[in-house]
Amino acid sequence: MSKSSARYVMRLLVAGASLAVVAQAQAAPPPTELSGASLFAQNCSACHQLTGKGVPGAFPALAGDAFPQGPPEPVVRLLLNGRGGMPSFRADLDDRQIATVLTYVRSAWGNHAPRIEPAMVARVRGSAAQDHAAQALQAH
């Protein structure tokens, strides 16, 4: 997709995405509760690795790193909006899942930072501007 038309397409997609969310809510069975470790393995480990050590020069380490253990709001915002090579998880993980996976990251591999609550994620989700295109039917 040429990014010149991305804004136009994005408007269509945002409209489409909200319809899809409604449809999903009607049709899908209630999601199984996944542990923080499982959510991390599923959504994060491809880049940050199961060890949390990342890949030097490509994917940042989370183990022992100050950012994920720092103030919660920027961390939550990063998961919601993405940055650099990291995608937005806004449409893919709900508030509880984001809280669960971040709480895991903040306590795994010797990390030590207070847990993050779903209510906190909900608040940031509501206030943060969405800066990410939803998915196109066909891209390139």
């Binding site: 880049c47 993405g82 993980l93």
Partner: peptide, 13 residues
């Protein structure tokens, strides 16, 4: 398959 963004993060794991 041909997936992007968070979905690609997931499948690539």
């Amino acid at each position: 398959y041909y997936q992007f963004f968070a979905n690609a993060a997931k499948i690539s794991a």
